[in-house]
């Protein structure tokens, strides 16, 4: 059965009065991979960031409409943003490990959340690294600096760091765009595995990547959600001409 995890209703977002998202209404299912595609500046990353209120950090941002996660409007006044971001984790395009050991990178979040028991932290670190499919590569050097890892490993470490605080939703903004094909393949495989436990929303410019890993695809253009459907449908027989033109590369 498909359970709705996120939904927005008539959502508008303005940067200093300029409309960046125009009336977005979408339902994102739980434990599925949902991909956002569209040309640069179409609003897909802005929309992704609005799902854990990352846009709050930007001056002049105004949001209208509803952004519901588990039927709660995350823009309500009484929402604790720190808790929200624990529940809705995020992985960025450029891997950004802390200049600390591999172990400390993962243990950092749980520690901030009050877990200090060494045994418990060890367990969290091991589980997170295993879930991010990097445990076997780093288990013998947990004390080494995370900055010594390869780009692909750093990105999986960042995914592990996100998983360590036990989120329900993982937002990913171009998580594999700076990686070589082999590392990209590992990240993609990982994303597909992660959907067993997490709701994944990914922004990608790589349309073949969206096609390979996502269950549903949303196409954004000029701040609007043009088409949202099963990925198979979008890539074989999209309804809208703009979607067709974009995915076939006829977009001028």
């Amino acid at each position: 059965m498909i359970v709705e995890k996120i939904h927005t209703e008539n959502m508008f977002l303005y940067y200093s009065g300029k409309m960046a998202l125009n009336n977005i209404s979408i339902q994102i299912p739980e434990k599925k991979v949902t991909a956002f595609i569209g040309p640069s500046g179409c609003g897909k990353s802005t929309f992704l960031r609005s799902l854990n209120r990352m846009n709050d950090l930007i001056d002049g941002v105004k949001i209208e409409g509803k952004v519901m996660i588990d039927s709660v409007n995350i823009y309500d006044k009484n929402i604790d943003v720190v808790n929200l971001r624990k529940k809705v984790g995020m992985v960025f395009q450029k891997s950004n490990p802390f200049a600390k050991s591999i172990y400390e990178n993962i243990a950092y979040g749980p520690k901030i959340n009050g877990i200090n028991n060494k045994h418990q932290l060890d367990e969290i670190v091991e589980t997170a690294l295993k879930n991010a499919a990097i445990w076997d590569e780093v288990k013998d050097r947990l004390g080494d600096s995370a900055l010594g890892l390869s780009g692909g490993q750093q990105q999986r470490l960042c995914i592990a760091r996100t998983l360590a605080v036990n989120p329900e939703i993982v937002l990913m903004d171009e998580p594999a765009s700076a990686l070589d094909p082999l590392s990209t393949a590992k990240i993609e495989e990982l994303i597909v595995q992660l959907k067993e436990h997490y709701t994944i929303v990914i922004v990608t410019h790589n349309m073949q990547q969206a096609a390979r890993i996502s269950d549903n695809t949303a196409f954004f253009y000029l701040g609007e959600l043009i088409e949202y459907d099963k990925t198979r449908k979008i890539f074989t027989n999209p309804e809208k001409k703009q979607t067709e033109d974009y995915i076939t590369g006829r977009f001028g």
Partner: peptide, 9 residues
Amino acid sequence: QQPVASDLR
């Protein structure tokens, strides 16, 4: 070319 949509069809 990894065709999609109408090209693929």
